[in-house]
Amino acid sequence: MKKYLILMVLAFCSPMVAAEVHLRVEGAWIQAVPPGIHETAIFMVLVNPGPEPVRIVGGTTPVAKRVTPMLTTKEDGRMGMKDVSFFEVPSGGRVILRPGGDHLMVYGLKKNLQAGETVSLVLQLRPGGQVSLEVPVSRTPPQ
């Protein structure tokens, strides 16, 4: 009986051990957009307390087709965007995604998001692992 109990505990523990993800997500939110608009952005602070750098290559959410890392650029006084394949959070460092700056770009919204509701988001990491979180919808940065 004791043996089975240990096995069960191990079974419950194993996904956490396998992930070994040292990534903390703070203050995540998704920009509410009007009906008929199918692109939006997700903002958050990514904190990496671990010993290795962590890369976020994108995400998945049931409410949109694609979630990808996007840089904000400024060139000749023009603000613009540039696709990147990942955000890297250095060991002991953080990456801030905020309005008007770098963000996770959301393509192909499948439904209109109402301020106050939350959407599920799974961040895909490299070399492996993922982080699941609930992201509130808001028109402005939550205080």
């Binding site: 692109e39 952005a41 603000m79 008007g100 028109r139």
Partner: peptide, 17 residues
């Protein structure tokens, strides 16, 4: 422009504030 996911919502939110 309205396909703008980041800068324009930020600008209009600031305008509103």
């Amino acid at each position: 422009f309205t396909h703008c996911p980041n800068i324009c919502p930020a600008t209009l939110s600031h305008f509103s504030a």
